[in-house]
């Protein structure tokens, strides 16, 4: 655009509200996190001393922190892959269907609106070791289900809850991607005798790869940051630390453990991670604009 309004003061007035909110509730806390990451504070917050990079050194020598990184990776990739796979399958099926497509869509997208914490509680009821129908059914088949004692089972439960909520989102994007695949390509391939299966893997899936990559990033970001509620409402990071992700640990060390220095250092590490993910996403957006 090349035409602008020639005003001197008005634009400042217009950006002012957002700038003020951003400065107070974003930049100030971020600055505090950076500052605090270099200090050691006593448990009552009465005094603190400058310790340089000690908090970071301590953090990266702490086996617990590596454990939380590992938990985060297992959790995030499990959520992303199972969510993408199930959603892609359902979207391909919905794309084939002629009658009732919108009804199917409606009945599949509503979990998006459910808060992560509530999703966790709903699945907890199903898997409750003493009375949950799925847990009892598993016990009938000899699986000793108790996610309060077994770390792997606790992880499975939070992965299921988090995936359940995210399927709807992936489904909508895959469906939109599938509808953008040119019909003529599919028709040409089927005239050449390619089976539906072959058509999917050699034509449709490669054409969907931008959507898939975009969704992978979004799903990882979701699993990293938005699933706090799932974990806090169901397992609270337990048993032990087997479901304590990095974001959960920031909260836990800061508010329960009252170790402000370490929590702030972890915040800084996470901010760095988010920055990297944002850059990846922006790169992707620029690439998408090209074609």
């Amino acid at each position: 655009m090349s035409v602008y309004f020639p005003h001197k003061k008005l634009p400042y007035l217009l950006v002012l509200p957002q700038l003020v909110i951003t400065l107070i509730f974003f930049l100030w806390p971020a600055e505090q996190a950076f500052e605090q990451a270099f200090y050691q504070e006593d448990a009552f917050g009465l005094s603190r001393e400058f310790v340089g990079f000690d908090n970071f050194v301590y953090l990266f020598n702490d086996p617990q922190y590596y454990k939380s990184i590992w938990v985060t990776l297992v959790f995030s990739f499990s959520v992303a892959f199972s969510g993408l796979a199930i959603a892609l399958w359902l979207a391909v099926m919905a794309d084939r269907v002629i009658r009732g497509k919108l009804t199917y869509q409606t009945l599949l997208v509503w979990p998006y609106a459910v808060a992560p914490a509530l999703a966790g509680v709903l699945w907890w009821l199903l898997f409750d070791p003493s009375m949950g129908p799925v847990a009892l059914w598993l016990q009938y088949f000899g699986v000793d289900w108790n996610h309060f004692l077994n770390g792997d089972q606790a992880m499975t439960l939070v992965v299921i809850s988090a995936t359940w909520k995210q399927i709807s989102y992936n489904f909508l994007f895959f469906l939109a991607g599938l509808q953008a695949v040119p019909r003529s390509l599919i028709e040409a391939a089927s005239i050449d005798g390619a089976s539906p299966f072959k058509r999917f893997w050699t034509i449709v899936f490669p054409l969907l790869s931008p959507t898939t990559f975009f969704l992978l990033v979004i799903n990882l970001v979701y699993a990293f940051f938005d699933t706090f509620g799932v974990i806090d409402a169901t397992t609270q990071g337990g048993p032990g630390v087997s479901t304590a992700t990095m974001v959960y640990k920031v909260f836990n060390d800061g508010f329960i453990g009252l170790d402000m220095g370490s929590s702030a250092a972890q915040s800084v590490v996470l901010m760095f991670l988010v920055g990297v993910m944002t850059v990846i996403q922006f790169r992707y957006i620029e690439r998408k604009v090209e074609y």
Partner: peptide, 13 residues
């Protein structure tokens, strides 16, 4: 700069 950085990350400050 605030894009994508959720409140969960900077929760304590």
């Amino acid at each position: 700069i605030t894009l994508m950085l959720p409140v969960e990350v900077r929760i304590v400050p």
